[in-house]
Design a protein around this nucleic acid. Sequence first.
DNA 1: AACAATATTAAACAGCTGTTTGAGTTCTGT
DNA 2: ACAGAACTCAAACAGCTGTTTAATATTGTT
Lengths: 236, 236
Amino acid sequence: MGYPLLTNQTPKPDDRHAKDRLLDAAEELFAAKGFGEVSVRELATAAEVNVAAVNYHFHSKENLFQEVIRRRFTVQRDRTLDGLQTLLEQTSGQPRVEQVIRVLVHEYLDGAMSNSFLTMITREMHGGRSGTHLEFFKQMVAPVFQAMSQALMAARPSLTQEDLNWVIASIVGQIHHFILRRIKCDDCDDMPEAREIMHMAFPALALGRDEYIRQTTDHITRFSTAAIDGLYPEEN
Amino acid sequence: MGYPLLTNQTPKPDDRHAKDRLLDAAEELFAAKGFGEVSVRELATAAEVNVAAVNYHFHSKENLFQEVIRRRFTVQRDRTLDGLQTLLEQTSGQPRVEQVIRVLVHEYLDGAMSNSFLTMITREMHGGRSGTHLEFFKQMVAPVFQAMSQALMAARPSLTQEDLNWVIASIVGQIHHFILRRIKCDDCDDMPEAREIMHMAFPALALGRDEYIRQTTDHITRFSTAAIDGLYPEEN
DNA sequence: AACAATATTAAACAGCTGTTTGAGTTCTGT
DNA sequence: ACAGAACTCAAACAGCTGTTTAATATTGTT
């Protein structure tokens, strides 16, 4: 819808349709600066597109934002759900707590560091404009939350639903924090003093992308597993 | 500075000087909606003040924001530092890990739920406008971080500085998450469906202010203490 | 080649943004 | 009581916001 879908020639990267270029530019800019801090003209310039294109292809700036979400979030959600599913199959429905947590943390961190989508979500979930995200919550957050609950319950049957609420919140809180730290640090590219201070307070920020993901995933997983083992020990 | 400080009559609550009323209104609105989503006219209306007052008493909207921070952050920081200091004295420099964490978590959560200042900071630290907060980081975050490091080191000497970086980040990440959750939920006052869903996913959000603080403080403290005990056991 | 659908464009829209102005009012110290 | 500082106010400022318009160009289908 919007532009002809039946074109046979594969367009060169810089020559794709305006709609796609806008989606990519929006994802990146929204992630980098937040919805409110990006103007339509800024989006148009980045996508090498006329200002009117935003309102032509999408009805509004807000709707463009929603489309950016829609394009990615099912993929990300399904990767996490599949990861948990696979784990359950490979372990005959008896996974270890550590494995369950690692799936969630890794998929989230990896996704957040690969494309700008999860970065955008993480930032936007913490900003204003609450009402906007109800659909996102129902379709993205809720299913993952539920799958996580089930997997953790399989791993440690003594966990009640209320325990799970608290535990999962603690894990997600850590994930968000480590992602946002990285964003904040990257934001300081042009401010050497700020960058230096952040590196001093948290040296891991100086690591490369993959190494940061690896170490952070490892820390959150080990930290949270130890917490669960301590608070809700295995009954045997 | 700005308005006469020598007035002898104590002004009635609704009759205070414009500067103070602006600071209060700003703190509340910035916390509720974020810096970018609050207009100067909105601030002026809330403070029952002329639009020009913002630029007369403070040079700019940005500067008003900074003043809001300056007014509170030393108090909050010192409360936390004092709390840690007192703990160290009462335990003859040998506190338990659980006690150290509880001080940080409680002071932060209590402060965030009492006045809007920490809510504002928490929200703004996660938004755009990175450069703004360098001073805040140096004067507020760094000292508390350092004091926390020392106290935790006293409680568990086997912890290295690198361990502490990760551990404290995990604790702070949880604190932020539980504060922001509460904010998000409060934002949904006028959206019953959103509110209902949030309560369903996390029943604790339905609790009253004090009970939420109590249970959340308790959870984060126990979770993090268990994690540290598991990962870095006491050498004896 | 001609038609209609689709896409792009520059220009303008009304409305809001933070800030400034200059004249008016209120307060303070003497 | 008076001079001068401190403050308030309505009005206007230039600049940006998201969005719309109407003319033009490009496209796919016949």
